[in-house]
């Protein structure tokens, strides 16, 4: 079937099978390979994108269901001139990534969190990341980066 959607502000069209997942459409058809696949049970969050402003694991949605939707992926997070968003910059400043595989999902999730809750507590950040697995960082610097991006003082324990 044919579909049309707006991805990172650009209109795209495609032809997919009914069973094609949104993540596969993004990665294979649109070659937006920043969105990753880390599992097959909707548990890891590596595939997280925004669909009509909502946080969605793109492995849980058929591409066809996103027909007509507005999609935001990691490729659209920085400014046109390449300037990182505040969240992206905080991840670099606070070493919130190592291998980078979970990172796009983490950044997209953090963006939703800060939109909903501009000054989250440490506990709220950790709760919100429940659906995103990172195997590298032990989350310490991810939590720290998100709190820094929200412009808050760092808890003493997060200092290192």
């Amino acid at each position: 079937m044919k579909l049309t959607m707006k991805v990172n502000g650009r209109e795209v069209t495609g032809e997919v099978e009914g069973r094609t997942l949104l993540v596969d459409f993004l990665r294979s058809d649109l070659r937006l390979t920043g969105t990753h696949v880390g599992c097959d049970t909707s548990q890891c969050g590596a595939c997280t994108v925004h669909v009509n402003g909502e946080l969605v694991k793109s492995c849980t949605m058929f591409a066809a269901e996103a027909d007509g939707a507005e999609i935001a992926t990691i490729e659209g997070a920085a400014a046109e001139d390449g300037t990182l968003s505040a969240i992206q910059q905080a991840f670099q400043d606070h070493h919130g990534l190592q291998c980078g595989y979970c990172t796009p999902g983490m950044v997209m999730t953090a963006a939703s969190l800060l939109k909903e809750n501009p000054k989250p507590t440490e506990h709220e950040v950790r709760q919100y990341l429940e659906g995103n697995i990172c195997r590298c960082t032990g989350y310490h610097n991810i939590v720290k980066a998100i709190m820094a991006a929200s412009g808050q003082e760092m808890p003493a324990m997060a200092a290192e």
């Binding site: 548990q43 697995i133 989350y139 324990m157 290192e160």
Partner: peptide, 19 residues
Amino acid sequence: SYMDYAMPRADDLPFYSVD
């Protein structure tokens, strides 16, 4: 799968103090 193998998640862990 991650349904049966429990991976550590952000809310299972504290900030660490490392030196």
